[in-house]
Design a protein around this nucleic acid. Structure first.
Lengths: 193, 193, 193, 193
DNA sequence: ACCAGCGGGACATCCCGTTTGT
DNA sequence: ACAAACGGGATGTCCCGCTGGT
């Protein structure tokens, strides 16, 4: 095989990350393949050697970034579930997450609306990612609970919704209050029963 | 002037509603002025007599639809706050809302991501709409509470997030569970303290 | 209606003729809409106000040029069928026809192969034009015949084939002989029986 | 060299035949090297080891298919010229020839228009093939004639024209009549004098 | 107010020739 | 000989704002 597998993977990853950045900042339609490839230090011609279409790339970029986010919020062995959950929430509901200063912005929040109007394969990928995130939170939340595990679906949606809405708001004070409110409510939901 | 004020308003409204429909179904970029005007039974030439640009229209369509949603969920005088809140939640978290069979889909949920990447004037309009919705819910929820009023910002975001995420999911069963979960959690948040 | 009907028709005709010229000289695929519009002294943007697609234009250009050719070979009242047929053949089988110095090159000969690989609507138009040409020749040829009218389908195909092949040949002498041969054979076919 | 001469020739032939198929079905411009190589079960990388450009390939494919056609219509020793001519005409003017079900479609008929707009080297190859076909028919037709050999150039053009036009027509009945008409007229031309 | 011709910008996709590597 | 990444050219189609015209 020409070009080492490693080199190909690097290229592929560079495209995926450039794409995800642009998709979250400008949306699917407003992002051109030229821009994406420029962000990956290549030209348009190379694109179709890696992805079959812009749509295909969108799906893969969604999956890729979901994995990254998932990895970022994965609990280290030595930490307890309870305390890790707090860390997770603090990170997820942090201002830096909104401004994409965060290294791994969550596609579930940044692409919701966009995904809803995309084709089924994309929505499937989103559904998988949502389920994963929900499972993760569910695990951490139910660990110390001696009552029966409860649905965290809405709690997860609240996290996603908070970040998504906060990103759309044009009032820093309100954004701050919203994040704060979410931090306090999410505890009630996850701890109380 | 050969056209009556009323006719102008009708035309304007037709454009706004056609626009909102398309914006929610295809997003800002993928919606063309031609399509919008076709949905309002006119041609592009007429567009510029009413709006200065697609962006301007987007903002106005957002405001228009927010008012419509607000009106739809406005409590009739004879009904108690508590019971009306239940009606409101049932309507908002209903499947028909997702599929746009609902007569007044909520722009806050249908356009979140899209708004976040639009210019400031649009985000201002979104912020206003979000505040209004939050106030409304807050009023209904705090009416019977003798404790101090509490922030409902996250609860509102949960509603929005649930609808937004549900629209993106590709699994009917999961969608159903999410709506269900939200219905039960929202009560805890709004009632408990 | 804005712009007079006449102006629109002029524009339309200019596009059609520019298109036919290019299609015969470079083929369907190698001809770009930019080139066509440039030949009609306009820019690409105006194109779609007149035709729905390049394919549509091709069909219409075929029809337009077929009509022109038909008109060119239409017998004046005072001339006898017999003598007019000779004029017609002389013009059709003339070198100037091949080089497109002729004012109305016959699409049946110049586009045969191209039409065969185009969609059905185009082939329908071609079929109509072929039938018309055949009828015309048939009328002139059978006029003085007191025997029963005979099929001229192959004679027509011979004319078309001769011009088409002659255009493809790279040997002036051979081209000349072919045209000569066709002139003599066509008489036998049309007159004898 | 790790590849045998035989293997190279097989590959070469596979490319030529795939190319000719596509050129007749989609035309020169609409056929990509990728498609051709796919039809030969290889990728584009291998192409340039055999041909210098698409144009070069076109010329060679024309020559190759002309030889194949020529071979197919070559008279077996035991058959008389007269009866073989009938076989030849029957085969050439058969419906299966049009639909490419025939194993060796005639490039003279399938590519006329396309060749006319190609560069000189291609037209030379076409001219050679046309001369060959004409010679062949001429030989068979003049064998039993005790009069001086006559030009069959137009007769050959009629065959080519008939097949070319028939392929472009969109009316089975008319196609049938055209082939029929050609069959009967060609006899007159070749036999009578 | 509304219609439609027109100019010109943009972009996903395709395509071809070269390069890198086996 | 063959495979595939890559650069960069081309084009049909769409899109938007302007303008002539009713």
């Amino acid at each position: 095989m020409p070009y080492t597998e490693e080199h190909i993977q690097q290229t592929r990853t560079a495209i995926l990350e450039s794409a995800f950045n642009l998709f979250t900042q400008k949306g699917f339609e407003a992002t051109s393949i030229d821009q994406i490839m420029q962000g990956a230090d290549m030209t348009r011609g190379a694109f179709y050697a890696h992805f079959s279409s812009k749509s295909d790339l969108y799906r893969q970029a969604l999956i890729h970034s979901a994995k990254k986010t998932q990895a970022k919020y994965h609990k280290p062995e030595k930490v307890s579930e309870q305390s890790w959950l707090k860390v997770l929430l603090r990170g997820y509901l942090h201002k830096d997450h909104l401004n994409q200063k965060n290294s791994a912005p969550c596609p579930l929040a940044f692409l919701v609306t966009d995904v809803a109007i995309r084709e089924d394969t994309v929505r499937e990928a989103y559904t998988d990612a949502y389920r994963s995130m929900n499972n993760m939170i569910s695990n951490y939340a139910n660990s110390n609970s001696n009552t029966k595990p409860k649905s965290t679906l809405a709690a997860t949606a609240m996290l996603i919704g908070t970040v998504a809405v906060a990103r759309a708001l044009d009032d820093e004070q309100l954004t701050h209050e919203l994040l704060e409110s979410c931090r306090s409510e999410i505890k009630n939901i996850l701890e109380n029963n």
